[in-house]
């Protein structure tokens, strides 16, 4: 459904992504793990066209082109078929929880307002926040904001939702409520690509795990393969470190 080939990206001659290839199939829940600075955020931002890759190819939603040759029409097509959940939520500060969700439906998808509100309420219900629909982001806890962020992505019914460390900015006691929502989504068949340090999620919810370091995919496979029988030394070291620190 989404196929990335040899994606490359650098900043000022510094190569950050050194040729990443990635296949996402419908219903996949892919966890991307790896040390900080390894290029995980950069990867998601380049796939979703928040940044323009220096090289590589994308096949997605009818677009089949080198990143550098994407027209603005192609970019719009890609954006309309992905969802993105940000590390620091990025809810629209001047909109209520409900409006955060209806905005994209009404403005980008041209859905009627009443219809959009119905969809948004359903999405809020799904993340357990029906009673917060009229609250502004500043009136919500971090965990609630992130759940609205997830509802905002889900409501647009994109082909795949990207999550960039969705629980990293949260106080520990709020992590659980967000992970639960993500687990529910995964179980209902939502296609997800999740950058995370939550090893439990990676191991028990995803069907595929990718370990990244220094701009490369070092190892990938089923959670069982990567966690129980990692073949690369770097993977073993990383897992030993992170599991020791939990």
């Amino acid at each position: 459904m989404l196929k990335i080939d040899h994606l490359k990206k650098g900043y000022e001659g510094n190569e950050i992504l050194k040729g990443i290839s990635l296949d996402v199939n419908k219903g996949d829940v892919i966890s991307i793990i790896g040390p900080s600075g390894s290029g995980k955020t950069t990867l998601l931002r380049n796939i979703t066209t928040l940044e323009r890759a220096d090289g590589g190819h994308i096949q997605f939603a009818g677009v089949d082109k080198d990143f550098q040759k994407l027209s603005s029409q192609d970019i719009q097509t890609i954006r309309r078929n992905v969802g993105f959940v940000f590390q620091n939520y990025n809810l629209f500060n001047n909109k209520t929880a409900l409006q955060n969700i209806t905005e994209g439906l009404i403005v980008a998808r041209k859905v009627k307002k009443s219809e959009a509100e119905k969809i948004a309420l359903k999405a809020l219900e799904r993340v357990g926040l029906s009673d917060r629909q009229n609250h502004y982001p500043s009136q919500l806890s971090g965990g609630q904001q992130q759940r609205v962020g997830i509802a905002r992505a889900v409501a647009l019914n994109p082909q795949v939702i990207f999550f960039d460390e969705p629980t990293s900015a949260l106080d520990p006691e709020l992590v659980g409520e967000v992970l639960k929502v993500m687990r529910d989504l995964a179980e209902s068949g939502t296609t997800m690509v999740v950058v995370t340090h939550q090893m439990n999620f990676a191991r028990h919810v995803s069907n595929k795990v990718i370990f990244m370091a220094d701009g490369y995919i070092v190892e990938q496979g089923s959670p069982e393969e990567v966690f129980a029988h990692p073949s690369e030394t770097r993977t073993k070291e990383f897992l030993t470190d992170i599991l020791a620190n939990v």
Binding site: L50, R79, R80, F86, F92, V107, R152, L156
Partner: peptide, 15 residues
């Protein structure tokens, strides 16, 4: 991040 969030729900930069 406000602009990026807008782009990721499919709105144009101007919208």
């Amino acid at each position: 991040g406000q602009m990026e969030a807008g782009l990721m729900v499919g709105m144009t930069p101007f919208q």
